[in-house]
Simulated scan of single mutants.
Amino acid sequence: MAVFTPVTLDDLSQWIKQFPLGKALALKGIASGIENSNFFLTTERGEYVLTIFENLSFEQLPFYVQLMRHLAERGIPVPAPVANDAGELVVALHGKPAAIVSKLDGSSQMDPQPVHCAEVGTILAKMHLAGRDFPLQQPNLRGLDWWVETVPKVLPFLDAETAALLQSELAFQREFAAGPTYAELERGPVHADLFRNNVMFVGERLSGCFDFYFAGWDTWLFDLAVTVNDWCIDLDTGRLDEARVVALTRAYHAVRQFTAADHAAWLPMLRAAALRFWLSRLYDYHRPREAEMLTPHDPTHFERVLRERIARGAPNLTA
């Protein structure tokens, strides 16, 4: 959510007339994140978020915006896309796909306690079940195929020991993904990026989840592992906080019970989730794109997380 494509109020003066939002009154770039250009947008009808998509195409975007609409219609607190007068949810702005969604109430909880983790576990399970009848399918674009493609691009920037770890973990994940346990995992649309800064709270109540633009079709357990690897760790060491892990996974299990395959795959999926974000941060750090307000994330954070998962394992699900 950096700003790659600058936008001004003058740019919006005619463009926004196609939406039932009245005049654009204020526009402010959002600095966090590194994929799309995002802005807080104030109009005569209220507050919204405007996104210009820098990598996703017009053909890919229906999956994301329709998924948000699908979940919102089923009571999941997510941003609701706003259609223009022609019923379109994605329209061109400065020659790129753009969308407007409702702005959620609350603020991010960057120092989560077990009570917050339980809220996240509950909503993630509800989100998975609500997506079972979503009609569109699109692969996780940052899944295994992308890992295989991207590892060679970052290896030249790494020392021999770090490169060996990256290659070894990729080999482990390719072997696991080809096995019978992985094939048994339940799957469907997943958020795939449900970090602390993508969830809003009002007090201890979860008020919304947003930034679905890494969503795709993947295993539900991978989505849970991505979430645990952010919400339930010590940020300095990458170590899991067992109280937070138990709170989140028990709350999830209360809505969507874990299967035998889930239990067997839990540690490999935690490692997969760490690899995915280590690799994407390595790529963004060593091969950055220019953008206003862009600060690439530190790739060594998820390297530490991966090393921790390999060395120490993880608490059992619903322990």
Rank of each mutant, 00 (worst) to 15 (best):
H94D: 06
W220K: 00
D105R: 15
L104Y: 08
R289N: 05
E242V: 15
H128I: 02
L136S: 01
V3M: 04
N38M: 03
H253R: 02
S32W: 03
A251L: 03
E186W: 02
S37E: 09
G208Y: 09
A98D: 07
R205K: 15
L282H: 13
V90A: 02
Q66F: 04
D85W: 04
L235I: 06
R244E: 03
D133T: 15
R271F: 04
I123M: 13
D85R: 12
P152F: 01
P62S: 04
V255W: 04
V90K: 01
A160W: 00
A215F: 06
P77N: 11
A118V: 09
E119L: 00
S280P: 05
W266R: 13
V202T: 13
I123L: 15
M293V: 13
P152D: 04
A243I: 05
H253Q: 06
R250N: 05
G121D: 01
R69W: 02
E292P: 01
P97D: 13
A31H: 12
D10M: 12
V255H: 06
L235C: 02
G29V: 05
D236Q: 15
K126T: 07
A125S: 03
L136E: 03
T43Q: 04
A99L: 09
R250C: 09
Y283M: 13
L124Y: 05
R289H: 11
A171V: 07
A118W: 03
A171E: 15
V90C: 03
F302N: 15
P189T: 11
Y252S: 01
L221Q: 06
A311Q: 14
D223L: 08
L93A: 05
A274K: 00
L275I: 01
I30F: 11
V151M: 07
H116M: 01
I52S: 05
L155F: 00
M269C: 14
L267R: 13
F172T: 14
P6K: 10
P180D: 15
Y48M: 00
P6Y: 04
G87M: 08
T181S: 14
P315C: 07
C209Y: 00
A92D: 15
G75S: 09
Q109P: 00
D236M: 12
A164F: 10
W146K: 05
A125L: 05
L89W: 11
R205Y: 11
L270N: 05
G179C: 11
R187S: 10
I16M: 14
F195Y: 15
G313Q: 11
F258Q: 07
W278K: 08
A83N: 08
G22K: 12
S168L: 06
T227W: 04
V228K: 09
C209P: 00
A192F: 08
R239D: 10
G46N: 01
D159V: 03
A215I: 02
G131P: 06
A171F: 05
L67W: 11
L194G: 00
L317I: 15
A243T: 11
D262P: 07
A215H: 07
A319N: 14
E161W: 02
A98R: 02
K17M: 10
S168V: 01
F4W: 13
F172V: 02
G87A: 08
G313A: 15
A24I: 14
